[in-house]
Design a binder for these strands. Structure first.
Lengths: 129, 129
DNA sequence: GGCCTGTATCGACAACCATCGATGCAATCC
DNA sequence: GGATTGCATCGATGGTTGTCGATACAGGCC
């Protein structure tokens, strides 16, 4: 486990200065889109937040599955997608499998979305909601 | 324009303390998933970064369309999705249509993904990449 | 008015995705 | 060893999505 497909770049380019400062090239856009797509589902968002907000840092699948009105294979599928996006990782311990957050990936997204502290933004229509 | 469907919540709940601190409820997850889904496409990510990183704050569609190997209706479609997600807005000025970033939405995502400064994260497997 | 240009919408189609039941595999317990 | 439990994988299926050409609409120009 934790080693099935080389989908999670795990460490590739910490560089990119953010979405909001310079146009992304195709490679950066493709790589980031994979991660955002993984977050683009309510079930996966809830799974991720359940895992990330866990006190001990890790959660057993047996706690995640009953929290949803979905079949066990469906939850397993969503966890796999989150793992392939590099957002979480897991380990089998005896009968059970535990998942935890990989904070590097969420940190990277937060940086990519962050606006460099007081960017001008001449607000042609204002709109800072 | 700017007023076609009430899809962009524009200002709904600045509250939610973040993905990583407490489990999301279904409503929050559904709402956030819509925005992340809009970011889950390389073309839309590049469009957004082209718009956001623009010096004057706004970009004419006539500059965006030729930057891609895609048809004009396809670009228009992607811009519509970004707008429905509350990430950008637009205005027609004469013959041309101009788009700009709504920084409130990206700010909100950045906050949602940010980890509250020195969260423990006992790292059962380390993995801070 | 009529034409041209820029952009949005429509309808169609192929590709992808979320979901399920069935099944397989791993580890424990008897 | 055999039974049981926890989780992953497989195959199928209906719904969603990215893309296109055709078309409609809006505004400027003659």
């Amino acid at each position: 486990m934790s080693k099935q497909e080389p989908d999670a770049p795990t460490g590739t380019q910490e560089c990119c200065p953010g979405l909001l400062t310079a146009p992304l090239d195709e490679d950066q856009a493709g790589e980031l889109a994979k991660i955002f797509k993984a977050l683009g589902d309510p079930v996966r968002l809830r799974l991720l937040s359940m895992i990330a907000s866990r006190a001990g840092g890790e959660v057993c699948v047996c706690e995640l599955t009953p929290a949803f009105d979905l079949s066990q294979p469906t939850i397993s599928h969503h966890l796999k997608l989150l793992r392939q996006a590099g957002l979480i990782d897991c380990e089998r311990r005896g009968t059970w499998v535990y998942y935890w957050l990989l904070p590097g990936t969420t940190d990277r997204l937060a940086r990519v979305l962050a606006r460099p502290a007081g960017q001008p933004l001449p607000e042609p229509s204002g709109a800072v909601l």
